[in-house]
Design a protein around this nucleic acid. Structure first.
Length: 520
RNA sequence: GGCCCCGUCGUCUAAUGGUUAGGACACGGCCCUUUCAAGGCCGCAACAGGGGUUCGAAUCCCCUCGGGGUCACCA
């Protein structure tokens, strides 16, 4: 039975890079009918609060990445919070101590630092002198009586080579002497990541450790611990991290300002921000950031689009397949086809996937996706009455592929606000309405609309005929009309717009702009 | 700096000794068109460099250069 895991720290948000690693773990487990679990890496602090975990769990659920064991679902190998597993770690430390694979050490932080710096000055690799390694209980007692605090360090081999196989990197070999005597237990008895991780992976029967490349250099010391504890080693696969737009640095949520210099990244961000502004969502970099998964949920992306994009960020099936259903991803996923080098995050390409996915959704589904956005913007009531849903569906149908993310429905607010609250885009107004010719044409077409049938096809014929008799281009009448009734120079078909709005609203709005441009 | 990893169009990638180095996103042009999208067609654009091995190298070997990760009582 294949078992993989993802071990997030409860930081309050789900990072794009983390999610991709989790996705690879999930796919690999599902591919072989195995299990995927979530374990919470909260060894570090007491400040871990449930509210910092919730967004992460919500994010996974939204993406459809489910876990067989872990928070909220339990499982036979719990607890799944490292903060609740201290006894296991301490037992492991005891074993390592007994086997002579670890030792109590009484060096102060300053003393260690001094040794490190001395080595640096001498331009030789740092290797701890083990000056304060307690070899006997008497040593411990003596140093403790001096007021020193003892930590437990790994007693790493100082000769030989650590060899292991990595499913992505191939055969690895690292000299043991390059591994420092890392601390595994603090003076207060709490334990550190490298130890906890190994113990948990073993206790939870993890067979394949698929994690970010930055952990590659932790692997020898973890192997040392695992072997010391008599564990069977898991298989390893170190996936390259997700890099910044246009660079090879690791993607970080703290560098939003820098990424915004990238035009593609900026465009995606600004688009989302405009939607957030209408919804009144807070837009701090902490929560509203294209590096964070929740950004896409808030703006109305489809989880399948995000997952598909992430899948292809560092993995590919062949030279042509771009679109994968979940079932297809699961069927085809393999560690061997993960790339070795870091892949830059390209928000624009993610958006392209989103557009393709959205275009595939039937109108009914798009309508469902869009309703909550209209409700959050207080443009329609919650719950929405049937006739409102029908109306929204008609608008969604008319908008077609212009709705690229669910939040784009907010571009069509003109259909939901009363005439007096309709906002006119300044530029559109100046260009298409505030002109004597436009005023005259609007006045004339208004008359025709009074008696016209408000149906798209009929309106199209009417306006075409009107333009011809007036001797003007279709554009000369369509644009003023569109701006008059929607406030914007862009949108779907003018004829459909008028029809959907209805005679009453259209006349009202035309009257409003006529009044404003009187006497030009 | 030590150790480790990586290096094909701007970006994501295909190619596993023999291809005019393919596709996608982005970008540019044209067409379509009542605006805006969408769509159609065309185009721009890469094997980091140098040595080998070989009849033949993006692919194998070596060196150089470049980029990144890691060197915590963080995870």
């Amino acid at each position: 039975m294949i078992r993989t895991r993802f071990a997030p720290s409860p930081t309050g948000y789900l990072h794009i890079g983390g999610v991709r690693t989790a996705l690879f773990n999930w796919l690999f487990a599902r591919r072989y009918g195995g299990q995927f679990l979530l374990r919470i890496d909260d060894t570090d602090v007491g400040r871990n609060q449930p509210e910092a975990l919730q967004p992460i769990l919500d994010g996974f659920r939204w993406l459809g990445i489910d876990w067989d064991e872990g928070p909220e679902v339990g499982g036979p190998y719990g607890p799944y919070y490292q903060s609740e597993r201290l006894d296991r770690y301490q037992a492991a430390v005891k074993t390592l101590l007994e086997k002579g694979l670890a030792y109590y050490d009484y060096a102060t932080v300053e003393e260690m630092k001094a040794e490190r710096e001395a080595a640096e000055r001498a331009k030789r690799p740092f290797l701890y002198s083990r000056r304060w390694m307690a070899e006997t209980p008497a040593d411990r007692a003596r140093w403790e009586s001096e007021g020193r605090k003892g930590v437990v360090r790994l007693k790493m081999p100082r000769e030989g080579v650590c060899r292991f196989y990595d499913h992505i990197r191939g055969d690895m070999a690292v000299e043991w002497t390059h591994e420092a005597d890392h601390v595994i237990q603090r003076a207060d008895g709490s334990c550190l990541y490298n130890l906890a991780n190994v113990v948990d992976d073993h206790d939870m029967r993890i067979t394949h450790v698929i994690r970010a490349e930055e952990h590659l250099s932790n692997t020898p010391r973890q192997i040392f611990i695992a072997q010391g504890l008599g564990y069977e080693l898991p298989e390893y696969a170190h996936v390259p991290f997700v890099a910044e737009p246009g660079s090879k640095n690791k993607l970080s949520k703290r560098k939003l300002a820098q990424y915004l210099k990238n035009p593609d990244f900026r465009q995606v961000y600004e688009h989302g921000k405009a939607i957030a502004a209408v919804l009144g969502l807070p837009a701090s970099a902490e929560t509203f950031n294209p590096v964070i998964v929740d950004f896409y949920r808030q703006v109305g992306y489809l989880p399948d689009a995000l997952v598909n994009y992430l899948l292809l960020l560092g993995w590919s099936l062949d030279d042509k397949t771009e679109f994968f259903t979940r079932a297809e991803m699961i069927r085809h996923f393999s560690l061997e086809r993960i790339n070795k080098s870091a892949a830059s995050f390209d928000a624009k390409k993610l958006r392209a996937f989103q557009e393709r996915y959205m275009a595939l959704e039937p109108v009914e589904r798009k309508t469902e996706l869009v309703l909550p956005f209209l409700q959050k913007a207080k443009l329609i009531p919650r719950p929405a009455p049937a006739e409102v849903v029908q109306r929204v569906m008609a608008i969604v149908r008319a908008a077609g592929e212009r709705i690229k993310v669910a939040g784009d429905i907010l571009d069509y607010d003109a259909f939901f606000v009363p005439t007096e609250r309709l906002n006119y885009d300044d530029k559109a107004f100046t260009q298409h309405i505030r002109k004597p010719a436009a005023n005259a044409l609007l006045r004339k077409i208004r008359q025709r609309l009074e008696t016209a049938a408000f149906e798209a096809k009929a309106l199209e014929l009417l306006i075409q005929e009107f333009a011809q008799t007036e001797g003007v281009k279709l554009n000369d009448i369509n644009q003023p009309l569109r701006v008059a009734v929607t406030g914007k120079a862009i949108g779907f078909s003018t004829y459909e717009t008028l029809a959907l709005l209805g005679r009453e609203h259209c006349l009202e709005r035309i009257d409003r702009v006529l009044a404003q441009t009187e006497g030009l």
